[in-house]
Nucleic acid binder design. Structure first.
Lengths: 214, 214
DNA sequence: TAGATTGTTAATCGATTAACAATC
DNA sequence: TAGATTGTTAATCGATTAACAATC
């Protein structure tokens, strides 16, 4: 298997949405500038880390003043590639898929879900959170029509690899995977898995440090 | 704010559930031993990384043979603290909460959801995926009764902090947070947030390296 | 035995943190 | 101006990778 290309600044990328979130609150409050130190304190980071992270956006602050909230906010959106939401199709309208369709905040995170599919004849034709569920057989047409380049996979584990292959075959370049499997994809396709087991593992280990008795 | 204690070997902890998953497959196939090299190839890791990771479990392999699957599998379960599932209560039976309740594989990941709560009078009393939804007002009694020490928070962002405080007040030590907010908690309480924005940020940046044109 | 695979010790790499000169 | 906050350069730290002796 070809080694995955190592991605630079991954920890920083992970923190960016947090900065963005806080900056949006500040903007909503009408705050115009903020120092790295203040931002750090609010988010529980180190000031120097905030300065280093923000430096990657290319925005420069003013000594004694800090950073202008709006330009910084915009720069982070650009850094993350969230200015224009990418079109995505969702496959698997079970309870999880339905929950994803029901969350309408993804456009702010660069994701616009344009269509939803399911293999179950019972679901096809039903409307879920405003999306008319289509048959997985129609994926090809719809992906082409919408020029979608992301696939959200919320099918059961056993079906995920097949669904991923279907999506890739019609040109999807990124897969946001909620199925608890590691998908095998060709080079040039990116898989990002939301791994609940990983999250629970970290929670569990951290918890055993806090309460070693249990 | 008190600085979060730095957790050692976090990358390894994150990979452990992946090893575990694969070892379970192997065990199911009746495979008795596996070498670090083979495991690495299957998972897309480096062999030396696998050896280093597995060393942390305390299990030792045999030269020319590899590791015994079953003891290794058990050692990882122990390492993650997943041998005895911790009791958890879930708050917020919206579409996401309902999806979580519907997934019955969490016990294998150290989490046993024993009760579900919602603030909505419409939901209280209904049965969702086998759980009778209780009023959030009853959280205290139930947490005490079940001796739950984890709270799963799947309420809207605005309610999450309040719910977290309620849970902590009745003795919950770990919070698995699905709300898109950073929860403020006292020392001695662990929050693990499933941050979809973070995941989308990483997907987006990786994607823009693969398809820079869009 | 021969040699494949381990665990250990050392080297490299990247991220975090520290120190401080530059600057508004 | 004085001094708070920036960005840069260097030091530290931890994770990954490499090299290789130990061993079954």
């Amino acid at each position: 298997m070809k080694r995955e290309e190592r991605i630079q600044h991954l920890p920083t990328i992970r923190r960016m949405p947090t900065y963005l979130h806080h900056l949006k609150s500040l903007a909503a409050e009408g705050v115009e500038t903020i120092s790295a130190a203040t931002l750090a304190e609010r988010l529980g980071f180190e000031p120097i880390q905030v300065r280093k992270d923000l430096a990657l956006t290319g925005v420069v602050g003013k000594p004694r003043v800090g950073f202008e909230v709006m330009p910084l906010l915009q720069a982070i959106i650009d850094y993350l590639g969230w200015r224009d939401a990418r079109k995505a199709v969702l496959v698997g309208v079970g309870s999880l898929g339905s929950a994803i369709l029901g969350y309408d905040g993804f456009e702010a995170f660069g994701l616009q879900i344009v269509a939803a599919f399911d293999a179950s004849a019972d679901l096809v034709g039903k409307v879920v959170h405003g999306y008319e569920v289509m048959s997985t057989q129609d994926i090809s047409d719809q992906v082409m029509e919408f020029q979608a380049n992301i696939g959200v996979v919320s099918v059961p584990a056993l079906a995920a690899q097949t669904v991923a292959e279907q999506l890739i075959a019609v040109g999807v370049k990124g897969i946001w995977n909620f199925a608890p499997v590691s998908l095998q994809v060709p080079e040039g396709v990116v898989v990002q898995t939301v791994d609940l087991a990983e999250s629970l593992g970290v929670l569990s280990v951290r918890l055993s440090r806090v309460m070693p008795d249990v």
